[in-house]
Every structure is written in C-alpha cells, then in structure tokens.
C-alpha cells in the first residue's frame, strides 16, 4: 500500500496494528524534517507532488518489495504540502516472519521512493531565502538520496 496525504502521519501510525500471527519482525522507518541542511538553518519544508504519477510509482515500489522479499506486508505513506521541523515526512513499515527480510524490504522501499516518486522539496531558511532541493550530483538518475 502506498498513500499520499497532506495531514500529519501521527494518527495513521498510531492506529496501525499488526494482527498477522505469522509476523515475527516488523521494521519501520520514518523520515523527519531536519532543521539544518548543508549548513543552512531550515525553518519549514514544502513538498510538491505530481499526485497521479506519484501514487502509481509508489505502488510499483511497494509491489516490487513484496515480490523481491518474503515479507507479509508493506506500507509507505508520504506527506505533501507544508511541514514543520520535526514532523514525519514519510513512514515505511515492512513485516515478515524474520527480521532480516523486513529490514531489507524497508530499506528497498525508502531508497526507491527517494529515487523515483515524483515529489519535490522546497526548503525555507532562517535568512528568509528558499530553494528547491535538487541533487545535481545525480545526473540522469533523478535521485536525491
């Protein structure tokens, strides 16, 4: 399952329960808004999204993880819109019988989401300047890892 939402992720994370008795390992990752990037003090983030394609590409990533690793479930939820420092921007959960597969699947999902899902991040700085975060060292890959 891959979802995009503008609202905080707190509620959905707190409400998620693991009921499959075959699950012995659950690995989650959360990406949070950091207050510094490349030495500049960040005060606010804004995620812009190409929603129609982001949902399709995000679902592909999660489906790939389910095929590549012997896991039970995989979920990824990404926020868009304005986020404050410390807020969760993305949450990934992978569950499996044993921990190793869940760790691998969780890492695969977040890495691929960062490379492929069309979301863009604008940082607002303390000095009132702002800039799109663009990984120009990732020529031809669109990656921003």
């Amino acid at each position: 399952m891959f979802l995009l939402q503008e609202e905080s992720l707190e509620e959905v994370i707190n409400k998620t329960t693991l009921e499959n008795p075959e699950v012995g390992g659950a690995v989650s990752f959360e990406g949070r808004v950091r207050n510094v990037n490349k030495g500049k003090k960040v005060t606010l983030l804004e995620y812009q999204v190409y929603e129609e394609m982001a949902v399709l590409e995000g679902r592909k990533v999660v489906e790939e993880a389910l095929k590549l690793f012997p896991i039970k479930e995989a979920i990824c939820i990404h926020r868009y819109g304005q986020l404050k420092i410390g807020e969760r921007a993305v949450w990934v959960l992978a569950t499996s019988k044993h921990r190793k597969e869940a760790f691998k699947a969780c890492q695969y999902i977040i890495d691929e989401v960062k490379k492929r899902v069309p979301l863009w991040k604008k940082e607002f700085y303390e000095d009132e300047s702002k800039a799109w975060v663009e990984c120009l060292g990732c020529k031809g890959t669109s990656a921003s890892v």
């Binding site: 990404h78 921007a89 899902v117 069309p118 863009w120 669109s142 921003s144």
Partner: peptide, 10 residues
C-alpha cells in the same frame, strides 16, 4: 507530458 526535475522525497 511532464519533465521531472531531480526528485526529493523522503
């Protein structure tokens, strides 16, 4: 048609 600048999710 959409031109996709370097993405920055996560």
């Amino acid at each position: 048609l959409v031109f996709i600048p370097p993405v920055a999710g996560g």
